[in-house]
Design a protein around this nucleic acid. Structure first.
Lengths: 336, 336
DNA sequence: TTGAAAGCGCTAACAC
DNA sequence: GTGTTAGCGCTTTCAA
């Protein structure tokens, strides 16, 4: 069977101590080991196909060079994209990443946190689902370095957060809508009680009132579980009611909503205008180029890793980083 | 600062030995520890918020309950979907998964293998890029349990493989094409020297000759690096040449190809028929439902994990599992 | 029923 | 320059 080669094997082979081998293989032998012996050790290591055992190293140093990432929902493109950036950035800093999706489920989230902790991750980046405040408090109490992305829990003070201004992003969407001559927009969103989603809705409502003089802005909330079943009727109703543009609050809703339009042969922007939150590669096979709110995914990934690592290295400050968004204008919301 | 709670802390708190605590917390104390003491220990563990240190456990037991997954290209939906299934299945078997993408780069692949080995994964599932035969040989020589998915290297005998019959899948696509009255199909694929892709092409060519009496089947090969730049001209040329259906050999090519059709307002299947290899959620926002070859992703994920775990547990047999594919007929290749 | 102790592979403080 | 050794947190054998 398989027998992994250890420091001891190399030491034994050469009749030296494991310490010497460790020094050489970690390039810490300046003034300790003769160059000749060092060379020998390196050669033997190569010959024997030595691979250092990180598990042992981690145990000894109480540091795994691993960060945990827990996202809320892997089936959302936004998160899978961000996961990529976080992985890339981690690698740049010589960290590994281990990863899990909580599927918007608080219990699953808590389990994942436990798994990550027992695997001794040095820190965690997380997009927490609803109802996980106590776990966040726990992490904070335990001084476990963590950074919250995308989501924000105003009830917990002094935690490290990185995200966008969702209210403002939505507000600007309505500015764009108004500028391009739409007068009766509706927002289609999920009925979920998360701060960042409420902010998106609030931005839309406020701006609709202020910029379009709409007394009761139209917001359709759909339960995530029944999304693909319900959205068809809801969309058709909006159109029948004379809504002239639909603003989808996430990627996932957008895909479902656009599918309805395709199915019913509804032309964009002629019959209805469209704006989506978040981008998707798939938009390019829709019959019209899509206007969308672009979040700085790469920057979120990058900064969250950097912030986390600085926390791991003992930096104490609680930071809330708010990044900017852009509206990428396509033909789907062209002047009306 | 943070101080993690260890077995020793619990033992100390109660004035017992760490052994007893270990027994109790692992439910292995039958006939060894009194129920009263066991209860006490469990309570203290809970009070102190004890989390077992998996790193130490792994070191001791020489087993990490972690499997590595290396995929060829994360930006390919096929792989990201399969990664999900593999993660789910691993979790079911109480394994964690660590993950990396080689981006079709042999060197990156080799590095990833090293990372996984040094983190002492119990086994690896991999979709290997071109030019990695020697690494596979190495893994084999070292008796490191691994399972190859999607890809196949005929030059290496007796390794565990899970995939589909690509030749047959393409052959059946042409059967479908012929049955539906198309007479001049073209295949658009990547110019990459991988066995499974060559098989897809060969199946198309053979069937075109045998079923459609085409002497020189039309196969357009595009270099992956220039895909989105080149595909537009190549597609337009095909259409000008009177090709009546295009068969895209992967997900990624399909998305780029469909985008060209959208851009030029080319109607499917009226002006050109379409069949794609692999499914994509995004197809639903294309103006016509898409015919595609469906691989059994979940089954691939599930069986690869099961096979790997059986290898980890000492099973020696070299298996090659070939799973079936389906053609899901949409309107994009409707009778002509 | 209980506890002491060895040892997994590695690092680093400490002799020599 | 070189080697010895303790110990990271845990499991498990062995002795009491």
């Amino acid at each position: 069977m398989r027998k992994r080669v250890s420091l001891k094997d190399i030491a034994h082979e050469l009749g030296v101590s494991t310490a010497v081998v460790s020094y050489v293989l970690n390039d810490k032998y300046e003034g300790r080991v003769s160059e000749a012996k060092a060379q020998q050790i390196r050669e033997t290591a190569k010959e024997l196909n030595y691979t250092p055992n990180q598990i042992a190293k981690s145990l000894k140093k109480d540091k795994t060079f691993t960060i945990g990432l827990i996202i809320a929902d892997i089936s959302n493109l936004f998160y899978s994209n961000i996961a990529r950036y976080i992985e890339d950035e981690s690698k740049k800093h010589q960290y590994n990443m281990i990863f899990g999706s909580a599927d918007e489920n608080a219990e699953k989230f808590n389990e994942l946190v436990q798994v990550m902790l027992s695997r001794q991750v040095d820190g965690i980046i997380l997009a927490a689902p609803k109802g996980t405040e106590s776990t966040l408090e726990y992490l904070k109490d335990q001084y476990i370095p963590f950074v919250l992305i995308d989501r924000h829990f105003p009830s917990i003070p002094d935690i490290n957060t990185i995200g966008i201004n969702n209210f403002q992003a939505s507000y600007r969407v309505v500015e764009h809508i108004a500028k391009n001559g739409f007068r009766k927009p509706a927002m289609v969103t999920l009925s979920v009680d998360l701060f960042h989603m409420r902010e998106r809705t609030a931005g839309f409502k406020n701006a609709s009132k202020e910029l379009l003089n709409i007394l009761k802005p139209e917001v359709v909330e759909i339960d995530e579980e029944v999304l693909s079943g319900e959205i068809e009727d809801r969309m058709l109703k909006l159109i029948k009611d004379g809504v002239d543009l639909v603003y989808f609050s996430t990627n996932k809703i957008a895909m479902e909503g656009l599918a309805v339009l395709v199915k019913h042969n509804i032309s964009v922007p002629r019959e209805i205008g469209i704006i989506c939150f978040d981008e998707a590669d798939a938009y390019k096979i829709f019959h019209t180029s899509i206007t969308f709110v672009k979040q700085p995914l790469q920057q979120i990934g990058q900064e969250s890793v950097e912030l986390l690592i600085s926390l791991i290295n003992g930096n104490q400050s609680a930071k809330s980083i708010v990044l900017g968004t852009q509206i990428i204008a396509g033909n789907s919301s062209a002047p009306h």
